[in-house]
């Protein structure tokens, strides 16, 4: 079983990202489970959401404490929350930032940074980075295929909006693939 923890702020679509990643993974032929860290947080407050992937039915219901992957939707979260807590050695951290982060990242962790906000603004006209980061996650983790991600996005958003989100995800996917 592999586990993903998404760190975001209320309103950034972390829960939707978790759901869409699970949908894409399931459509790709594995069992998946997505759930939020159920809270009463309002817009702007730190939030978390989780995804599990496995080849067999997932029974575990606890939150994710030792993730294989983390997505950080907003690099300012690093100051507020220990986003790296429990991240496995060899794990992958995908961080949305426009800067070079001078941060003592844990050892043995692969850190991928990208300016998802700019990509999102370019395609959506809004700084909502969840689908962009999903593209990056697909490229970095291999847990989901870009095609499955597109299908999941189309199931959630209609017409034009789906297209814009897919364009953002695709750009991030290619950026991460290219960097690798």
């Amino acid at each position: 079983m592999r586990e993903l923890r998404i760190h975001g702020r209320g309103g950034q679509g972390s829960v939707t990202a978790a759901e869409l990643i699970a949908v894409a993974a399931f459509e790709g032929g594995v069992f998946a489970q997505a759930f939020p860290a159920f809270g009463v947080e309002r817009r702007g407050a730190p939030v978390q959401a989780f995804v599990r992937f496995d080849t067999k039915k997932i029974r575990l219901r606890s939150q994710v404490y030792e993730p294989d992957y983390i997505i950080v939707q907003d690099s300012t979260l690093i100051k507020d929350v220990n986003v790296f807590l429990g991240l496995k050695e060899g794990g992958i951290a995908i961080i949305n930032t426009e800067k070079d982060l001078s941060y003592p990242f844990p050892k043995g962790v692969k850190v991928i940074t990208l300016d998802a906000t700019s990509i999102a603004l370019k395609h959506l006209g809004l700084p909502i980075t969840n689908t962009t980061l999903m593209g990056a996650f697909a490229a970095a983790s291999g847990e989901i295929q870009l095609k499955a991600l597109e299908d999941a996005v189309r199931r959630r958003f209609s017409g034009d909006l789906a297209g814009k989100n897919i364009a953002a995800a695709t750009e991030a996917y290619q950026a991460v693939k290219g960097a690798a």
Binding site: A18, E19, A22, V23, F26, F31, A32, Q33, A34, F35, P36, F38, K57, I58, R61
Partner: peptide, 11 residues
């Protein structure tokens, strides 16, 4: 169970 099942995506 609230949230644990109600808000969880699974097959």
């Amino acid at each position: 169970d609230g949230f644990i099942l109600s808000h969880t995506y699974e097959p």
